[in-house]
Design a protein around this nucleic acid. Structure first.
Lengths: 122, 122
DNA sequence: CGTCTATGTTGACACACATCAAAACAAGAG
DNA sequence: CTCTTGTTTTGATGTGTGTCAACATAGACG
C-alpha cells in the first residue's frame, strides 16, 4: 500500500481531534487510520495487560520492573511498551535507574467517548 | 503459544463479563485475551470505516452495498465484515437479496466503559 | 429452467508483527 | 575504573493477516 506515512508518534492533540463519534458519520480514511492505530495498540493481550498494569498503579505510573510479569521476556516487554508509547497511550520518564511509564488520560478519554457515542446508537 | 482456544465467537455476555475497568487492577491473561480480540477487530482502518458506516446508518443497520466504498475489493469487504461479526461487534441478517449488518450496542458499551474508567485515572 | 446480480468462500502471496537470544547502552555501587 | 543491575536495541524466525483473483452460493426475475 506504499505506507510512506510520516506520522511516527500519535500526539494527544492529534488523537483528540481525530475522533468523531463512531456513529455520527462514516469515518474518513485518514481518521480511520489514526484511530485504528490506537485500537491496534490495545489489540494485543500482552500490551493490554501491560497497559492495565500501568493504569492500575497508583498515580497511573509504574516502572518496568513492576509490570514484567506478563509471561514474556523482558525485551518483548520493552518492545510492547515502545509500541504503546508510539501509539500515544503511554509516556515514559527515566528517573535514576528505573524507567517509569505513565498513562495518557486525554487519549483514553477520546477513545472512550468514541465508543460510548457509538453505544448510544438509537 | 499452542492457541487451542475454543472461543470462536464473542458473545455479548462474555464481553460484558470480561471487562473490569482498565485501571482497577491488572488484567488477567484470560481477560486480556478476550478484550484484546475486540480491540484488534477495530485495529484495522478498513474495519473501522466499515463499522463506522454501519453504526452511522439509521437504526445502526446497513446492507453491504451501502458500505462497500472503502477502497478495497468486495471479497475483502466481506472478509472484514466476517471478522467484525466473529468479534461480536456486528450481526448479520439476510433479508431477500441483500444482507444487512447491525451493530451490537452491549459490546460497545462494555468497551466504552472499560476505557472511560481508565480515563478517570486519578 | 436459466440467467443475472449480490455476497460469501477458497487459495495464494506479500507484508507486518510477536517473540526470543544476544549484544549494547545507562546508571548506580564498590 | 570495574562490576552489577535494569532497560533498550539488533538480528533472526515463525506465525498471523490484509489483499485480491477466481470460484461458489443465494435469491430474484423473466
Amino acid at each position: 500500500m506504499s505506507n510512506a506515512k510520516v506520522l511516527p508518534l500519535l500526539e494527544p492533540d492529534v488523537v483528540a481531534a481525530c475522533c468523531p463519534p463512531l456513529n455520527e458519520r462514516p469515518m474518513s480514511a485518514d481518521e480511520a487510520e489514526v484511530a485504528a492505530k490506537m485500537f491496534k495498540a490495545l489489540g494485543d493481550p500482552v500490551r493490554l495487560r501491560l497497559f492495565s498494569a500501568v493504569a492500575s498503579h497508583e498515580g497511573g505510573e509504574a516502572c518496568v520492573c513492576d509490570i514484567s510479569d506478563v509471561g514474556v521476556s523482558q525485551p518483548t516487554v520493552s518492545h510492547h511498551l515502545k509500541k504503546l508509547k508510539e501509539a500515544g497511550l503511554l509516556s515514559s520518564e527515566r528517573r535514576g535507574t528505573w524507567v517509569y511509564y505513565r498513562v495518557e488520560p486525554s487519549v483514553l478519554a477520546a477513545m472512550g467517548a468514541l465508543l460510548a457515542g457509538a453505544a448510544k446508537t438509537a
